[in-house]
Simulated scan of single mutants.
Amino acid sequence: MIKNIRTKQAILIGAVVLLVAFLFTRDIKGLVKPKEETNSKAAGGPMASQAPATAEINLKEVSTVAKNTINASLAAEIVTLENAYTSASEDKKAAEAKLLAKKWDDLEQTVPSALYLEIVASKEPTLNNWLTAGDTFMKAFDNTRDSVLLPALLQKANFAYTNAVKIDSNSNDAKTGLGITIVNGMGAPMSGIAMLMDVVKKDPKNLKANMSLGTFAMKSGQFDKAITRFQNIIAMKPSPEAYFYLGTAYENLGKNTEAIEAYEKSKKLAANATLSKFIDDKVNALKNKK
């Protein structure tokens, strides 16, 4: 029994890691410096112990590393924009930060882009600005394999979505983002799930909330629930991610025929050589189990 459970966990972890690596992963080296330890009792209360240790992302270091990954002419453009931001008066900094965020986003460098979007939101605190910052921090969170950077990005996303909810407590986008950060480690997981369930109750076709509930169901071993969730997502909008996760859930339940069908559909939609090779190997292995 224990062996079967461990096998299922290995299947789940391996499949999810491969999907994330294919769809989302970027190599980002450690750029986070922990803040000096604070007196948690003084800061206090029971809630203080629920959040992970705070970390600060150094914008200058992030930008320097990112500039080293692009060609010299593009790096020079970034430097010009950075100089304009630095020399801008306070009432102009938000506009300059938007330009930097857009440029970094165009270059697929989500961490510096998110940090500049956070600056924009702090200076122009609108619902959309905080949502955009939160979404970009979560994109960076999904992209990175840096174990030190992950909690800092999650905290940043949580902060952004918290501010969005303060502006509009009825915003499904804000509640979904906040719920995702809570379940991922920023508080009590069940409160985050309850928040996501509330979003889906009000908006059954909310893909982001449904996808999150599906992946969380898989992580907790509730594969039957995950299958139902991913089937509903596919009925609304088929995607390689949804089919891949559906296949993984079926595989964990030993439903190899259904898993093969889902994996093949994921491969067809993704049309990616790396994922195709992985799925072909997986499908062959599942066929040999019959």
Rank of each mutant, 00 (worst) to 15 (best):
residue 208 K to M: 09
residue 69 T to N: 06
residue 81 L to R: 11
residue 72 A to D: 13
residue 192 G to Q: 05
residue 247 G to K: 02
residue 93 K to M: 01
residue 266 S to E: 04
residue 167 I to E: 00
residue 135 D to G: 06
residue 278 F to P: 04
residue 62 V to H: 08
residue 76 A to S: 12
residue 165 V to D: 10
residue 266 S to A: 13
residue 187 G to R: 04
residue 15 A to I: 04
residue 130 W to L: 05
residue 288 N to W: 08
residue 59 L to H: 05
residue 134 G to L: 01
residue 152 A to F: 09
residue 258 E to G: 15
residue 71 N to M: 11
residue 65 V to K: 14
residue 119 I to Y: 08
residue 290 K to L: 10
residue 223 F to A: 12
residue 207 L to D: 01
residue 198 D to A: 12
residue 91 D to E: 07
residue 232 N to C: 05
residue 18 L to C: 13
residue 117 L to C: 05
residue 276 S to D: 02
residue 41 K to Y: 02
residue 127 L to F: 02
residue 86 T to A: 15
residue 191 S to F: 03
residue 91 D to W: 08
residue 3 K to G: 13
residue 94 A to V: 00
residue 270 A to W: 04
residue 72 A to F: 13
residue 63 S to N: 10
residue 14 G to S: 05
residue 2 I to Q: 13
residue 5 I to E: 14
residue 141 F to R: 06
residue 89 S to K: 15
residue 7 T to N: 14
residue 257 T to P: 06
residue 135 D to K: 07
residue 210 N to D: 03
residue 260 I to A: 09
residue 277 K to V: 01
residue 195 M to S: 15
residue 110 T to G: 14
residue 222 Q to G: 06
residue 142 D to H: 09
residue 118 E to K: 09
residue 38 T to K: 15
residue 250 Y to K: 15
residue 164 A to V: 03
residue 168 D to S: 11
residue 172 N to M: 13
residue 201 K to T: 04
residue 58 N to F: 08
residue 183 V to L: 15
residue 77 E to A: 13
residue 94 A to N: 08
residue 205 K to D: 06
residue 94 A to M: 05
residue 159 F to V: 14
residue 123 K to P: 09
residue 141 F to L: 06
residue 105 D to P: 08
residue 264 E to I: 03
residue 207 L to V: 02
residue 52 P to Q: 01
residue 117 L to A: 05
residue 257 T to D: 02
residue 128 N to W: 04
residue 19 L to V: 05
residue 179 G to E: 00
residue 124 E to H: 10
residue 284 N to S: 12
residue 66 A to H: 00
residue 68 N to A: 15
residue 7 T to Y: 09
residue 233 I to W: 05
residue 177 G to K: 00
residue 253 L to Q: 04
residue 59 L to K: 12
residue 152 A to C: 15
residue 162 T to F: 04
residue 61 E to I: 11
residue 147 S to M: 00
residue 184 N to A: 02
residue 77 E to S: 14
residue 217 A to R: 07
residue 25 T to D: 13
residue 258 E to Q: 15
residue 257 T to N: 11
residue 29 K to I: 09
residue 167 I to S: 07
residue 102 K to T: 09
residue 147 S to Q: 00
residue 15 A to Q: 09
residue 31 L to M: 15
residue 168 D to K: 05
residue 261 E to F: 14
residue 103 K to G: 13
residue 122 S to E: 11
residue 128 N to E: 04
residue 38 T to V: 14
residue 138 M to T: 03
residue 9 Q to L: 10
residue 224 D to V: 00
residue 88 A to M: 02
residue 38 T to N: 12
residue 112 P to Q: 11
residue 126 T to H: 10
residue 148 V to I: 00
residue 205 K to L: 08
residue 173 D to K: 14
residue 206 N to R: 15
residue 282 K to A: 03
residue 147 S to D: 00
residue 126 T to F: 01
residue 59 L to P: 05
residue 229 R to K: 13
residue 94 A to W: 01
residue 214 G to H: 05
residue 27 D to E: 15
residue 8 K to V: 12
residue 175 K to S: 09
residue 94 A to F: 02
residue 22 F to Q: 12
residue 80 T to P: 03
residue 215 T to I: 06
residue 153 L to Y: 08
residue 126 T to Y: 06
residue 193 I to Y: 01
residue 253 L to G: 02
residue 199 V to K: 12
